[in-house]
Simulated assay, not measured.
Amino acid sequence: MRFIAKTAFASITMAVFVLTGCQQYVQPQQNPPQIETAQNFQLEGKIGVKTPKQSGSAFYTWQQNNENFDIQLTGILGIGKTVIQGKSGEVTLNSSKTGEITAETPEELLERATGWIAPITHIIDWVQAKPATTAAIVQKDSQQRPMKIEEDGWTVDLSYNDAANLPNKLILKQALEAGQENRITMIIQNR
């Protein structure tokens, strides 16, 4: 029974990482103004998560159509498929091990599933090489593409294939106490 509980928790945690990453509870910050843009894309790739307490990886497919999204994860510790779906006002996580968990926002879903709070919706902008808020600090490369975004306690390093305008790899880092960090590596194989 203990193994099933740990496996279910790992499944929920990895599923929510596609939208954010493992984060210890931090005091919520004032929300800076959001940058308004249309959000439509489809991604496939692999995501890896490393925290002081655990690590893991999964393959993902992510379809985003403005506020609506569908994310499918496979390969989470050999558990099988996990699906996260969202539309305005409702986000659902479903897997054979956890059943269905529902919340109003991706951030609330993460908090319900794991007890952590993180800027989940920012990843939608970060995979498109954009900051999510006007308060972000952005460093650009010689081709004027964002190569580092610092925002809401996260540092995002973006890598590109040759002259591509959109990144093929993102490394999200959150500094923790005692020199530790949460790290999410997101590889985008297909757009």
Rank of each mutant, 00 (worst) to 15 (best):
S55G: 09
T102E: 02
I79E: 13
L43G: 12
Y60D: 01
K81Q: 11
Q63S: 10
E67N: 10
T82S: 07
F69V: 10
L73F: 03
G80L: 01
T61I: 08
N65C: 13
S55V: 06
Q42K: 03
T82F: 01
E90R: 07
S95F: 02
G56W: 12
T51Q: 15
T74D: 14
T61L: 04
N40P: 03
A58T: 12
K97A: 09
I76V: 13
A58Q: 11
Q85H: 14
F69H: 04
N66P: 03
I79H: 06
F59W: 07
K81D: 09
N40Y: 14
G48P: 05
G78P: 04
N66Q: 15
T74V: 14
Q54W: 15
I101P: 01
G80K: 00
G56L: 13
S55A: 14
G75K: 08
K46A: 06
K87N: 05
Q63A: 11
L43C: 09
T98F: 05
Q54N: 14
G48V: 04
Q63E: 15
T92W: 14
T51W: 13
S95T: 04
N65Q: 13
D70I: 05
I84A: 15
F69Y: 15
T61H: 09
G99L: 08
T102C: 00
L43K: 05
E44K: 03
G80Q: 01
P52I: 08
D70G: 05
Y60K: 01
Q42E: 10
T82P: 01
K46R: 05
T92K: 13
K46M: 03
L77P: 02
V91Q: 13
A58C: 11
L77T: 09
N68K: 07
N68H: 06
S88W: 07
K46I: 03
W62H: 13
N94S: 01
Q72H: 03
G45Q: 07
N66H: 13
T82L: 03
K46Q: 10
Q54A: 15
K97G: 01
G75E: 10
E100M: 02
G78I: 07
E100R: 00
G99S: 00
T102D: 03
G48L: 07
Q64P: 12
L43H: 11
S96H: 02
T102Y: 00
Y60W: 05
N68L: 08
N68P: 04
I101W: 07
I47P: 01
T61E: 12
D70R: 03
E100P: 02
S88H: 06
N40R: 14
W62D: 15
S95G: 03
K50T: 14
Y60C: 02
K50L: 13
K46S: 10
P52D: 09
Y60V: 01
E100H: 00
K50R: 10
T61V: 09
L93S: 11
Q64W: 09
P52G: 06
